[in-house]
Structure formats: structure tokens, C-alpha cells
């Protein structure tokens, strides 16, 4: 591991990466939507060799008492052992919980969905939007892949048929009504290794780096979520530099959603 770390650090000092990228260059990103027939909104996102599947499921339930006229958003991530030798079966580990909660923060705080439009009957019935993230292959930067998959799935999601008098959701019948998506928050994650910053870490880079900083931004440059991870640190100037880059890089990714 130390050998790989030193090698990656040397490369970064020369503004290079193992896979030929420049420090602030993202791997090739692809987004496919409507990939799960059973799901009213789904996406497959690939960032290099990292692949995640995201599926939306809608249900009708009771709102939280403090937000009686708002729908409920629930994001979960399952780090299934299929996707990496590092993942194990069993209850979710802190890494899976962090991934889900950071993905959630970007979507929620970026006000991606107009939750008030998910209200069916104030205080009694609202739409519950479940977003489930499943990595299919982890080659690093699951955070950005999950966040992109979540917004891509939401953007294309439609409501299933709902019979209000019988209070029954016809899960198999999709309407043509789209979910009220009103903003497109995009997350970008930067690594720091021996003082060098870089975008979109691979799995090998994640194993070697000191720390990461993920920032979710909106089209107008609003910053809506941040999360630092890892045992290293960032200087204030590095954070400000990353914030500027995050706004710029997310604009490129947002174009892929259109």
C-alpha cells in the first residue's frame, strides 16, 4: 500500500494520474435511465469502472407530524458483496450509512424535489419516495455515482396509479405524471494525497489518499451539501479551491442529465 501511495503521490506532483487523467479530470461518465422495468424511475450510472444502479419506489404513507404537508424522502445504500471484495453481508457498516446520508443530503438540501407537491391529504397521506442505491461494481467514488444516479432516477420517475378512495397504490401501473423535480443538485468528490488535490478518485486512489471532500452544488452555484472524510485534513484555501471547481465540474455533469 505504501508503494502505491508513493507512486500515486509522485504522479500527482507531476500533474498526472495512473489512468492517464489530469488531476481535475473526471473519468468517462454515462447515465442510462429507465433501466428497471419494475421501478417507476431508475438509472444506471457508470463513472469509469464504477457502476451503480438506482431505483425509485413510491408508496403512500403518513407524513411526519412536524411537516404534515410534505412528502417523505428516504435514501438507502446497500454495499452488496457482489460489487467489491471489500464489502460483506450483514447489517450496514458506517461506510454504507455515510454513503446513503451524504446522497440524501445533496438531494434533500438541494431541494431536488418539491416535497409539498407530494402531499395527498395534509397530515394524513403523502407520497413516500424511496431511493435505493446498489453499487454493481466499486472502482471508487461511489458518492458521486450514487448522487448522480439518484437525481437521474428522480428526474425520470413517474407516479404509480393511486386509487384514493380505496387507498391503494397500483404498483404495476405507472401514470404519465412525473415527480415534481425542481432542481438538479450534483455532487463532486475530490481527494487529497500528500498535499495534491484531484477529482473523482478511483478505488486505488481511495485506498491511498489522506482525505476526501464531497460538495453538492446547484446550477446557479449554490452550495447545498458538503462532507469531508478520511484521516487527513484540508486547508481553508484548498476548501475554497475545491468549492470553485465543484461548481464548475458539476455544470458539465448536469448537461448529461438533460
Amino acid at each position: 500500500m505504501k508503494v502505491i501511495r508513493n507512486y500515486l503521490a509522485e504522479l500527482l506532483k507531476m500533474q498526472k494520474r495512473e489512468d492517464g487523467r489530469e488531476p481535475f479530470q473526471c473519468r468517462e461518465v454515462s447515465i442510462e435511465t429507465g433501466v428497471i422495468a419494475r421501478s417507476p424511475g431508475s438509472a444506471r450510472v457508470k463513472i469509469g469502472d464504477t457502476e451503480v444502479l438506482v431505483g425509485v419506489k413510491l408508496d403512500v404513507g403518513e407524513p411526519f407530524p412536524d411537516t404534515p404537508n410534505e412528502g417523505v424522502l428516504i435514501i438507502n445504500a446497500e454495499l452488496i458483496p457482489l460489487a467489491s471484495p471489500d464489502f460483506e453481508t450483514g447489517p450496514p457498516k458506517p461506510e454504507a450509512i455515510e454513503l446513503a446520508r451524504v446522497t440524501d443530503r445533496g438531494i434533500r438540501e438541494g431541494h431536488a424535489i418539491d416535497v409539498e407537491k407530494l402531499c395527498i391529504k395534509k397530515g394524513e397521506k403523502v407520497w413516500m419516495v424511496n431511493i435505493d442505491v446498489y453499487p454493481m461494481n466499486d472502482d471508487g467514488n461511489l458518492i458521486d455515482a450514487s448522487a448522480l444516479g439518484a437525481i437521474a432516477a428522480l428526474k425520470t420517475a413517474v407516479f404509480p396509479k393511486y386509487d384514493e378512495s380505496a387507498d391503494k397504490v397500483e404498483y404495476k401501473e405507472f401514470t404519465k405524471t412525473k415527480l415534481p423535480v425542481k432542481a438538479l443538485p450534483i455532487m463532486t468528490t475530490f481527494g487529497k494525497l500528500a498535499g495534491s488535490l484531484f477529482l473523482d478518485p478511483t478505488h486505488r486512489e481511495e485506498k491511498a489518499f489522506d482525505s476526501r471532500l464531497s460538495i453538492s452544488t446547484l446550477d446557479d452555484g449554490t452550495v447545498c451539501a458538503m462532507q469531508k472524510g478520511g484521516f487527513g485534513t484540508f486547508t481553508k484555501d484548498e476548501v475554497l479551491q475545491i468549492m470553485g471547481l465543484a461548481i464548475q465540474k458539476s455544470k458539465e455533469l448536469r448537461k448529461l442529465l438533460k
Binding site: G110, H111, C224, M226, K228, F234, T235, V239, M243, I247
Partner: peptide, 18 residues
């Protein structure tokens, strides 16, 4: 002055975050 934890949720501009 090295930053060891940074999280944010909500909506702020780049300038406000700084």
C-alpha cells in the same frame, strides 16, 4: 488551521460558505 471536519447542509453561496 488545518480543517479536520467539514460538513454542510442547506443552501449558501460560495462567498457565504467562505
Amino acid at each position: 488551521g488545518e480543517i479536520t471536519l467539514l460538513q454542510m447542509d442547506g443552501e449558501v453561496s460560495q462567498d457565504e460558505a467562505a
